[in-house]
């Protein structure tokens, strides 16, 4: 499902990032790339989302978030 459609504060795993190369690399440098865990902390009606990734908080524009696919990541998959 789309990152923008997920409930907040549940663990998620990125399955795909369908953005352009620049945006993809930008997200990767923040730790957002397939296989990585993250959590949505804030998702208001409009404006950027706030994610928790690798212990940091990152704000990502809504448009870009719509290009990130995620699936629910269960707690056990946390090492």
């Amino acid at each position: 499902m789309l990152l923008t459609d997920t409930p907040i504060e549940i663990p998620l795993i990125v399955t795909a990032v369908n953005a352009g190369r620049t945006a993809q690399a930008r997200l990767a440098s923040m730790g957002i790339l397939p296989g990585e865990k993250l959590m949505v902390l804030r998702n208001d009606i409009n404006g950027p989302l706030v994610l928790e990734v690798k212990g940091t908080r990152v704000a990502i524009g809504r448009g870009l978030c719509q290009k990130v696919m995620v699936s629910p990541g269960n707690e056990e998959s946390k090492e």
Partner: peptide, 11 residues
């Protein structure tokens, strides 16, 4: 062109 994506750490 595409405006730069809003990707920003909230330190």
């Amino acid at each position: 062109g595409e405006s730069s994506p809003f990707v920003m750490e909230l330190p």
